[in-house]
Every structure is written in structure tokens, then in C-alpha cells.
Design a protein around this nucleic acid. Structure first.
Length: 1010
RNA sequence: GCAGAAGUGGUGGAAUUGGUAGACACGCUGGACUUAAAAUCCAGUGGGCAGUAAUGCUCGUGCGGGUUCAAGUCCCGCCUUCUGUACCA
């Protein structure tokens, strides 16, 4: 009966059909394509673009995308020209590691993963402008990453004007006046030269000097080397002394590396934080990362030597408390100053420290170690000899790698002094330092300190710096913890540097010959000689005559043999790090297909900065710092009109998964480790039925009565640890097939016994597996990943979108649970029903679409306008969870009012469209519109519909609400008081007493104090 | 150690400037419809005490104080959890 079938299709909420229909419509009509010119005001909403991993999306990924999509759609309704692009951060380690294992080209896996990501994203109904998609691994894109690198190479930082400038200007200055007046951010080993000197230098000498000034430079630097990954890591890629990816140990090693002179921007990166609307915790972590500290630089002369030791201290006021100095074991002066007598001991210590990994060194902060060098420094004021030690509590990477130790005022110096019996002079008046140092800056007066006696911290600090400057042995200084960022990675799957080497000096490839595309290699591993994977490429040399990549065999042998130069030079073998491609991508979206320049000036001007950026807080000190750095640089050089990339930033909280594990023990040592299972394994039969059944048995065996067990039930079902009889739920054979690595496993049972998986299960008292559940990050290895596709399939994208918002505040971390999803889904069904006439007699189903043209009644208009007001406020405050409840209330009320008026239902569809766009489009079409709902104007709130003539006043006695009383709103406080006092319930409460005081807050509350 | 955020029913979470604590939803209990299940709909649901009942009283926002007519919200002192960071001189 086709007729009935049609009616059925028309009336029921077939979300799968509706969603597919509108997703196709949006794609076909390019509904969300943003134009670079418009009469409308602009608004730029951006998500942090994903790395397309092989695992696909889990329900945690879309959380931020949903929020930003709601905001983008809202802004379109509000009349803005919205830029809401999406792309892929598609260079990265996982694809490369997969390539190493399988030989599959990372490009191939990356592309496959992108296809999968796109499918998953499309199913959720995002309003992305896909015509602007970027991929960092696409040569058309990384051409511009290479170009930015070249701009950095061609720039230096003028500290006087506080901005980056072209390096040719610096050359001009050198030619005319040398470098003595140049105030630049540069390497610290530059000698002064005059214009005459400069002009006499060879071209190579000039290039070597310029390299020390460039914003990206090549230098021998101590780096974090991860042998297992075969690459260096940046500080923010190391967590707890091991690599962030993989958790491998990291050691320190000297290597020739490209670095970015981000330290030149330290102060501006700090200052800029005041002008952007970012979460305070995130600003705080950037502030800490930059780590500005104010103090002094002091130089100590080494006795019987012409060497001087530079130190940085935040406490120049304690200079008379110095009783020794400590150098980092890696300090360059160690070899020079160590006496013969101490040489063996010092060398042994230096070697031992070098062998220790970063992790080991961090792990035992408590152990105090060090060696005396035999050398002494001279105190700048007293001239007294100060023994020079080396110790690994001093870090080579911070300050100058040397400290003046003031044991009375610093815990570490104090501990060191105590340990090695070094004297601890006291320079604080009235402070006992026999047990512990005095680290408080304020709160005491300096003593035993010559000209500093009697001064407090601030005065002494100032005075000490003055005197040091007089003597020429020190100066006030601001030090930053921020280090220059190492920019080379020994990997294959990253941007190649547009660099070739002529006589060992780096040369840039001109823009018109870019992109320099990744060469093909057979294997993605480092070479046997320890070169990066690009060292395996056979065609990887630059022909400067024809400007193209040619075979390595053609490389000019001139450098080694002095034969004729044929103009072919080796190319750089390192690739750029992960953050290279993501540091300026937000601007490339503005004009993504431009092949002539990074982006059109007018487009850059029109879109300005990102108005709203949503992403995880884990990028606080990585991506978000680097992108600010590059933006400021690009701004300095005139390539960008703005000097901050992002105005407002929101960190979405992580969605966590619930993992479940039983306890497995090792055969040999009976050590316990958790073995993760899919939480679903334990859910198939409900926790209630199985878990509690076995638990019930457990308790009844303990002699508890039925009633007592019932009382426990609630607690135990929701407790973190519940007992699940695996035998009832899990087929052991099936399990062994699923996880063959556990075919001989031994498990710990709840009663402490052990169970060998290959022996028969007895099922005696307490013989149940102990299962623990924990809420943690979703991860494949913990079997707690929930896939959004399944949710879309079962409930639809609109439900997924609303439910993710309904879970709680956006910024908060929250566990994923499907428990509440039916509530949101049935809300959408109720919404659907509101636009359909009820079926005669039937309770659930609806018949045809039906809206009335009659004016809406007062109550319905009130509901509508209340909803408009609240939803608008909520979206503006990014409080998406509360607006979902507002919608629920509205639909519940309108259903109760039997409202079917277009006057209400049409604006309601627009209100809900940012959250549930598919159902909104469908209803909008049924309402008779031929255009998409996407740009329908947002309903206007009219206060007149909310005007009330009376209010149900809560009446409190001594602050406790006792009853409510309906009273007109236009009464004066005196009239209100009279009315309340005349009410018999009031008298009943007072029981004849006279109230001391009556507080009347019109429109709010009445409180009677008695 | 330092910095930041947060502690509210069985659960997720609401609560403008201090002004009805627990919105909305899940779960649970009971009921309607059904051969049955699912779906749907209706009612109830913070704890305790009293009452046949409507209802009333009382305790309740991590703990202890304070300010106020009135405190989840403000102030002081603790405790716990989470996140970030860590020999930074």
C-alpha cells in the first residue's frame, strides 16, 4: 500500500534520510562558501585543524567543532559574513612510523585517513567552507611554509626599534659603520668589527657573521635527542623527561640544527597577552614558559687565569653571601680552569653526567652531587677567593649555565653547601639559618655586607647593581627562560627546507622555484651513516643553473677537490617540525589557492585576525606560542596587517572515556598489571543483572540478609570497583582469539586467588574477576574509544550535536556516557511532533505536517521570547549546555499549550538551527521556504511579551522561605508589606509576635525578621 | 614545591548584581497502552522526622569560622580532587 507508506515517511522523524538530504543540499549549493568581499560585517570562526590519524575521529574530537559550528551558524543568522574553514595538519610522526613498518608511502596513508576523516566530519553536519581546505603536506600549501622560512632567514631583529627587519638593511649598516652600534637579537659570540673590517671580509666570512643575526639560523646546539625516534625534540615535545609520542628516553647531544630566534620576541609575546581574550590558565602557562625574571648579570674573575665567569642572579642584594660558585658540568670553562689535581675527578663527573638521560637527572632531584674544580674566583667587592665547583643541579640551558651560590638564601645552594661542608655566611639580620636558608625576599635587612648593610631587598638590589656597574663587573638584566626553538627534525614526513649548501654555507632557493617537494626514498629510516631519511634520496641535489632538483651524483666536487664548480649542490637533509605548517595556516585560509603570494592583501585586510578559535589547551606552549611568534614576525615584515593571530580563544575540555580492566599477573613474579577491556564487554549484559547477581551471591555468602543486600545495591552498582563474573559474560575461547597475547595469562580474582586462563574455572566463593573502571583519556590501547559514526547511525547527527553540548560546560573535562542520549533524542522527536498534527486517538505517532496561520496566543509568544532571550545570551556566553535545556523547556511548554502557530514555530526553527541544523532545515522547508535556513535572520527578542502584571513572591521568615504569595508588580514596598502582613499565613507563622523588621525587595523577595 | 581550576541529589549538571538551592536530563518507582517487547504517554523522586492524607517541621551546596535581614555565591583559615609546570639561580 504505497499511500500508507508515503504518509508514514512524511510524518515520522526519519533523521537518517533528513540528514543525508541536507548534507547533500549544502554541498551541492555551497551554502557555507564565504566570500572575500561582502557588505556584511566579517566574522572568522576557526577550529584547530586535526592531524588525520589512522584511528579516525572519536566522540571527543567533534566537541570543539560542534561548539564553533553553532557559533558560526549563529553569526550567519545574525547577518555576518562568516569564514569557517577546515583543513588537515597532515605531516606527522604516526604516518611515518606506519611507513617504516609497512613500507607504505606516508602520503598514501595520510590521504586515506583524510578521506575517512572527511566522511566522519560530513556526517555531523558542519558548516565548513570546504572550498578553502588546506593540507600542510600538500606542496601547494608547504610552498608557503618554505617561503616563510626564507623570510625568517632574510631577517634580523632590531632591538632598538623592537621589530624584525630585512637582513639587507643590516648588511648596509655593516658596510657603512660596522656592527658596534647595532642592537640586535643575535648569537652571543659576535666580535665587534668596523666598516673597514667588514668590507675586507670574504663573502664567506660575511655569510657566517650574518648567520648569527638571522631570525632562523644554523648553529651547533645542544638538543634533546631521542635515539628511539631518531630525531631531536623541542622542549614542548618532551613530557617528564621522555618523548611525548612513544614515551622514549631523551638525551642531550650537540648537533648542527636550524633554530628560530623566538627569544627576540620574548617580551612582545608577554606583552601581547594583555590584549587578547584568552583563558587565564593558558595565558599563565605562556607567561611561565617565557619565564621573565629580573636581576643582574655579574662577572667573576677567575684567579690565576684571564677567564671570567658570567652568572645571572635574581638576588644581587645577596652578593656578600656568596661562598662558592657552581658551573653546569657542560660549561665551556670547566676544562680551562680545572686544576691538575682535580682533573681526573672532574672528568669522571662530567662523563657520568653526560651519560645520564634527562629523565634520570630529573628523577633524583634529591641526590646532591658535584666536584670541586680546584679553581677560585674573585669576589667582585671583597676580592676574597671563592671556590668553583661543578654540579648537575645547575642547568647548562638556563641563564649562563653558572650560578653564584648564596647558601644562606637559596635552598639548593644551602643543601649543596651542607653536603660538601662549605661555609654558609649569614647576611640576614636576626635570621637563624642553622636549620634552613631564608628564601623570603622581603622581611629582613641585609647585614655583613659592607655598603649594603641596613638596606632592605629593594634598596640593596638597586645599590648592588649600581656598584657592579661602577666596577664594570655587572649590570641589571632581564632573563627569560624561553629558549630559541630548534627547527630541524631528522624525519621524512615533513616540509623540506628550501636550502642547499655551498661550501657548507646555507643558501635559499628563490620563491619562483618553490615548492621544493619531498624526494622519494626507498625506506623511511635514517641512513646507516646516521643521516636523516632524506639522506637516502638519490635525486636530492640542487642545480643552481637550471633551478631544479637533480641526482646527487651531479653534486659539485669543488668543495673537496677544488675542481670546477658545476653549480650543483647538496640539499638540506632535515625536515621542518610539526609546528611549521600550523603556525600561519589561519591566514592561508583567507586565500588558500593563491599561487602568486602567501595571500592577497585585501583578503588579509578584510578578514584580519581570527575572531574565535576553539581547541585544546595542550597546545598552550607549543602551537599557540609559535603561531603568535610567526604572526608578529610576518606583521613586522609587512606581510600581515595584524600582530596577533587570534582575538578570542576557548579551550574545550576533553571528553574522557570509561575504561575497564581486570588484573593480570605475570607468571614469574606475580606482579600485577591492569589488562584493559572494552567497557562494552561488561555492559552487554547490564551491570545490574550480571554484576549485581554475582555481587549478590558474594554478599549472601557473607551472611547478609536480602534487605541488607538491597540496601547495598545502589552503592555497589555505581561504585568504581564492581565485581563481574567474567565467566558468565566472556567466552574464554573467544577471548583468546581476540587477544592471543593473553592466551596464557593469569588473572587476579576478587578473593585474592589467581586464575590461570587455561585451567577450568571453578566458580567457587569469591571466584570472580576483579574489575576496575576508570575515567581517562580515550585511547585505542584502553578500548574506551567511542566512535561518533555509531551515534550518528543510531540517533542522528542532530542528537549527537545537542548531546555533546548538553553534557556540560564546554571548557570542562567530562566523561562520555551514552546514558543521557535518549533524553536529547526524544526531545528532537517532540520538536518534530510540534510541527505535526496529532494522530486521532494515537498517543505517540503524528500524522501530517501542520502549522496554523492563526496568531499565537499570549503564553506561546511568552515562551518563544523567553527562549530567544535566553538562547541568545547563552550562545554569546558559550554556555551551550544551558541553551539545550532552554529548548527542552520551550518545547515542553509549547506542547502543553498545543501551540501550532507559524508565528511561533517559524522563529523556533531558526533558533534551534545552529544546534540541530538538519531537522531545522527540514522543518523550514515544510514551512514553505525554498531557501536554506542558514541565513534566515535570527528572531528578534521583544520584551513586551514577557511583561507581567503580578509576581509570585517568595515570603521568607528569617531567611527561610515559607510560602509564596501572588502580588501585583506595581505595588510600592509599603503596599507590599501591608499586603503580606494582612495575609493569614503570615500571621500563622508569626503566632502573635510582632516582626522586628520586614525587608521588601520589589520584584524579588519579601523577608520577615522576627 | 609552584601556578591554575574545581568540590552541589544515585548520575551529568542548573542557579544575572548575595534574594525560592537542585532547572533540564539520565536513572529509579508506580501507572496507561500492548498478547508481549520496544516506542510513547501520565504521575512521583535530596535526606530525615511527624501525619490516613493534603501538609508541616527539620537538616542540607567539601570542612571550620565570619559578614548580612538573607550566603552555593562575599571574607578568613583548612581539606580533597583534577590540570599544567618543575633543580629557572
Amino acid at each position: 500500500m504505497p499511500f500508507l507508506f508515503d504518509t508514514e515517511r512524511m510524518s515520522k522523524y526519519h533523521f537518517n534520510d533528513i540528514e543525508a538530504k541536507w548534507q547533500q543540499y549544502w554541498a551541492k549549493n555551497q551554502t557555507f562558501k564565504a566570500e572575500n568581499q561582502s557588505e556584511k560585517p566579517k566574522y572568522y570562526v576557526l577550529d584547530m585543524f586535526p592531524y588525520p590519524s589512522g584511528a579516525g575521529l572519536h566522540v571527543g574530537h567533534p566537541l570543539g567543532y560542534i561548539a564553533s559550528d553553532i557559533y558560526a551558524r549563529y553569526k550567519r543568522h545574525k547577518g555576518f559574513n562568516v569564514l569557517h574553514p577546515q583543513g588537515y595538519d597532515s605531516f606527522g610522526l604516526p604516518a611515518e612510523q606506519y611507513a617504516i613498518q609497512t613500507g607504505q608511502h606516508p602520503r598514501k596513508t595520510t590521504e586515506e585517513n583524510i578521506v575517512r576523516y572527511r566522511e566522519q566530519l560530513d556526517k555531523i553536519g558542519f558548516s565548513f567552507d570546504w572550498s578553502r581546505e588546506v593540507r600542510t603536506s600538500d606542496p601547494h600549501y608547504y610552498k608557503w611554509t618554505q617561503w616563510i622560512f626564507i623570510q625568517l632567514f632574510e631577517s634580523w631583529y632590531d632591538k632598538t626599534d623592537d621589530k624584525a627587519k630585512p637582513i639587507v638593511e643590516l648588511e648596509r649598516i655593516f658596510t657603512s659603520e660596522g656592527n658596534s652600534n647595532v642592537n640586535a637579537a643575535c648569537d652571543d659570540d659576535i666580535e665587534t668589527f668596523s666598516a673597514t673590517d667588514w668590507n675586507a671580509f670574504t663573502s664567506e666570512e660575511k655569510q657566517r657573521i650574518l648567520l648569527k643575526y638571522r631570525l632562523t639560523y644554523l648553529a651547533e646546539t645542544e638538543v634533546n635527542w631521542c635515539p628511539q625516534l631518531g630525531t631531536v625534540l623541542a622542549n614542548d615535545e618532551i613530557v617528564n623527561g621522555v618523548s611525548e609520542r612513544g614515551g622514549y628516553p631523551v638525551i642531550r647531544k650537540k648537533m648542527k640544527q636550524w633554530s628560530m630566534r623566538i627569544t627576540a620576541y620574548a617580551q612582545r609575546l608577554l606583552d601581547g597577552l594583555n590584549n587578547i581574550d584568552w583563558p587565564q590558565p593558558l595565558k599563565d602557562s605562556q607567561t611561565n614558559w617565557i619565564g621573565r625574571s629580573k636581576g643582574a648579570s655579574v662577572s667573576f674573575n677567575v684567579k690565576d687565569s684571564n677567564a671570567t665567569i658570567e652568572v645571572f642572579t635574581t638576588r644581587p642584594d645577596t652578593i656578600f653571601g656568596v661562598s662558592f660558585m657552581t658551573l653546569a658540568p657542560e660549561h665551556e670553562l670547566v676544562n680551562q680552569i680545572t686544576t691538575k689535581a682535580q682533573l681526573a675527578e672532574v672528568q669522571a663527573y662530567v662523563e657520568a653526567t653526560a651519560k645520564r638521560s634527562e629523565r634520570e637527572r630529573m628523577a633524583d632531584v634529591k641526590t646532591i652531587s658535584g666536584v670541586f674544580t680546584g679553581a677560585y674566583a674573585e669576589h667582585p667587592f671583597t676580592g676574597k677567593p671563592i671556590p668553583i665547583w661543578i654540579g648537575d643541579y645547575v642547568l647548562a640551558g638556563y641563564g649562563t649555565g653558572a650560578v653564584m651560590a648564596v647558601p644562606c638564601g637559596d635552598q639548593r645552594d644551602y643543601d649543596f653547601a651542607k653536603h660538601f661542608n662549605i661555609p654558609i655566611p649569614n647576611i640576614f639580620e636576626g635570621i637563624d639559618i642553622s636549620e634552613e636558608p631564608f628564601e623570603d625576599k622581603a622581611g629582613t635587612i641585609i647585614a655583613n655586607s659592607d655598603f649594603l648593610n641596613g638596606l632592605n631587598y629593594a634598596e640593596a638590589t638597586q645599590k648592588a647593581i649600581e656598584k657592579l656597574e661602577e666596577k664594570g663587573q655587572g649590570t641589571g638584566k632581564i632573563n627569560y627562560r624561553l629558549r630559541d626553538a630548534v627547527f630541524s627534525r631528522q624525519r621524512y614526513w615533513g616540509e623540506p627546507f628550501p636550502v642547499y649548501y655551498k661550501n657548507g654555507l646555507p643558501q635559499m632557493i628563490a620563491l619562483e622555484h618553490l615548492p621544493l617537494t619531498l624526494p622519494e626514498v626507498e625506506k623511511y629510516l635514517p641512513t646507516e651513516e646516521g643521516e636523516p631519511p632524506l639522506g637516502r634520496a638519490e635525486v636530492w641535489a640542487w642545480d643552481t643553473k637550471n633551478n631544479k632538483v637533480v641526482s646527487n651524483e651531479l653534486v659539485s666536487p669543488s668543495a673537496v677537490e677544488g675542481s670546477e664548480d658545476n653549480g650543483v649542490y647538496p640539499l638540506e637533509l632535515n625536515t621542518m617540525p610539526g609546528w611549521a605548517g600550523s603556525s600561519c595556516y589561519m591566514f592561508r585560509y583567507m586565500d588558500p589557492s593563491n599561487n602568486k603570494e602567501f595571500a592577497d592583501v585585501d583578503a588579509l585586510k578584510y578578514w584580519g585576525n581570527v575572531d574565535l578559535y576553539i581547541g585544546g589547551s595542550e597546545h598552550a606552549t607549543g602551537h599557540l606560542l609559535y603561531t603568535r611568534f610567526w604572526t608578529k614576525f610576518m606583521h613586522d615584515r609587512g606581510y600581515l596587517p595584524v600582530d596577533e593571530p587570534v582575538k578570542k580563544l576557548i579551550n574545550q575540555g576533553m571528553i574522557l572515556g570509561e575504561s575497564a580492566f581486570v588484573f593480570e599477573s605475570y607468571h614469574e613474579e606475580l606482579q600485577i598489571k591492569p589488562l584493559y577491556f572494552s567497557a562494552e564487554i561488561f555492559r552487554k549484559t547490564s551491570v545490574e543483572s550480571i554484576a549485581f547477581q554475582s555481587e549478590k551471591k558474594f554478599y549472601s555468602d557473607q551472611g547478609l540478609s536480602e534487605e541488607e543486600i538491597e540496601a547495598i545495591k545502589y552503592r555497589s552498582v555505581h561504585a568504581d570497583v564492581s565485581f563481574v563474573n567474567l565467566q558468565n559474560e566472556l567466552n574464554i575461547e573467544a577471548f583468546k582469539n581476540w587477544r592471543p597475547e593473553f592466551k596464557d595469562a593469569i588473572f587476579i580474582l576478587e578473593n585474592g586467588k589467581i586464575y590461570d586462563i587455561n585451567s577450568p574455572f571453578e566458580g567457587g566463593q569469591g571466584d570472580v574477576f576483579k574489575v576496575s573502571r576508570e575515567v581517562e583519556k580515550m585511547s585505542k590501547s584502553k578500548y574506551n574509544v567511542v566512535n561518533p559514526d555509531d551515534i550518528c547511525e543510531q540517533y542522528g547527527a542532530d542528537t549527537l550535536r545537542m548531546y555533546e553540548m548538553f553534557l556540560g560546560p564546554l571548557e570542562q573535562a567530562k566523561p562520555w556516557s551514552t546514558a543521557g542520549i535518549t533524553g536529547v533524542h526524544s526531545f528532537l522527536k517532540k520538536l518534530w511532533k510540534l510541527y505535526h498534527s496529532p494522530l486521532e486517538g494515537g498517543q505517540g505517532d503524528v500524522s501530517e505536517f501542520f502549522v496554523s496561520e492563526d496568531p499565537a496566543n499570549k503564553d506561546s509568544l511568552k515562551t518563544l521570547h523567553k527562549t530567544i532571550k535566553k538562547v541568545e545570551e547563552d550562545i554569546e556566553n558559550f554556555s551551550f549546555n544551558t541553551s539545550v535545556s532552554t529548548f527542552m523547556i520551550a518545547v515542553n511548554e509549547l506542547t502543553a499549550q498545543k501551540c501550532n502557530s507559524r508565528e511561533v514555530l517559524e522563529p523556533l526553527a531558526i533558533l534551534i538551527s545552529p544546534y540541530a541544523p538538519h531537522i531545522a532545515e527540514e522543518l523550514w522547508q515544510k514551512l514553505g521556504h525554498s531557501e536554506s535556513i542558514a541565513t534566515a535572520p535570527f528572531p528578534k527578542f521583544e520584551a513586551k511579551h514577557l511583561v507581567e502584571s503580578s509576581k509570585e513572591y517568595p515570603v521568607s521568615f528569617n531567611g527561610k522561605m515559607r510560602f509564596k504569595m501572588e502580588l501585583p508588580l506595581d505595588l510600592t514596598p509599603v503596599q507590599l508589606e501591608e499586603a503580606v502582613m494582612a495575609y493569614d499565613k503570615t500571621q500563622e507563622q508569626l503566632q502573635g509576635r510582632t516582626p522586628k523588621k520586614v525587608i521588601v525587595v520589589p520584584g524579588k523577595i519579601i523577608n520577615i525578621v522576627g
